[in-house]
Write a protein that binds this DNA or RNA. Sequence first.
DNA 1: ACCTGAACACCGTTCAAGT
DNA 2: ACCTGAACACCGTTCAAGT
Lengths: 208, 208
Amino acid sequence: MPRVQLTREDVLDAATRLVVQHGPQDLTMRKLAAELGTAVTSIYWHVGNRESLLDALVERTVQEMGALVPRGRTPVDRVVSVARALRRELRARPHLIAMVHERGLTERMFLPAQQALVHEVHAAGLRGARAAGVVRAVQFQVVGHVLVERNRERSPVQSPAEADLWSPDLAEHDPALARALARPADPERVFVVSVRALVGALLGAAAG
Amino acid sequence: MPRVQLTREDVLDAATRLVVQHGPQDLTMRKLAAELGTAVTSIYWHVGNRESLLDALVERTVQEMGALVPRGRTPVDRVVSVARALRRELRARPHLIAMVHERGLTERMFLPAQQALVHEVHAAGLRGARAAGVVRAVQFQVVGHVLVERNRERSPVQSPAEADLWSPDLAEHDPALARALARPADPERVFVVSVRALVGALLGAAAG
DNA sequence: ACCTGAACACCGTTCAAGT
DNA sequence: ACCTGAACACCGTTCAAGT
């Protein structure tokens, strides 16, 4: 792609490409310069330094996580639909999401979703501090689940260790449970079941 | 501390000290050598390379997260007590926990807790795949919450952004909620409320 | 306003040589 | 078996000099 003059956007685009493919540890200023066909030091003029560059990528990611449209009839259904949409968005950009997490901005990225949650909690008849508590609980739950799930996917030794731990004692006592825990979890299912249970409990308990 | 001969344990101890204080990015082989009063290359004889050294620190951390004693009378109380104990352990070693997370070993670290959870779910009368589902849901919930909480603590711009988002529209519509969300969350409270709600819902629903 | 190459301080790692 | 210093390839960053 020929280019008259290097811009900040050019740098961010090339950097995003490298990070999405191989993760941030593979983004060196020298590789990036080679990719852009410029001197290493030109990059510094446009983005300051490496840390600011990564910050800019993270900021972009946070911005892109736009508003989400809830679907379904009941508040519980609609909250679950927001949660599932969030999960999908996050899973499409694992490296960038990890960087957002490292910088402590995960929660800020979730602010649009928080607005949707407030709307649904209101629809369920809750107000004030009580409603805020429910919103926070759901938010922690969804964000947390996605982080754990990412973690699980990268883990190389998970299932064997789990199987090792369970096989002797438990296999005899409750073999079906041992088998179920030895199998890899279906995260989508765990996710939906948990969110539904939590939201149902918190909205139901307060409404009733 | 004078020392006749450098051992692998000496290296791990010194490395742990550096990581606990300033995080892994501050652990360089040269600083570590200075700390130990040896040549940089001696370290390589004992631990291979930097990556293996960090892996060893992570492995140690995972091992130290020993068995946990549940307290309380009902299964729900006992699960909540395990969850709170885990939370406390993790918060004492933030940098090391982040490293465990980066290596995808968070779940393996939670295996002892998983055993305790299985015991309580059994006590509540659940068996087999159904019990496994509850164990997994609680595990995701607890691990996820701790990760999110760590994240929140490091975030510098959380509350202002949150306040900005809420002040115009919502302050009028539900000022108490806006105030509640503008205040920093009490994570301990969110944690206990969520775990209790989830466990209550999953155990209660299946038992009844 | 934008780009460049040279130079600096730092890094992890290898290796041949010591005891 | 354990330790060492020299050397290598790589890194982010600064800076004076160019246009």
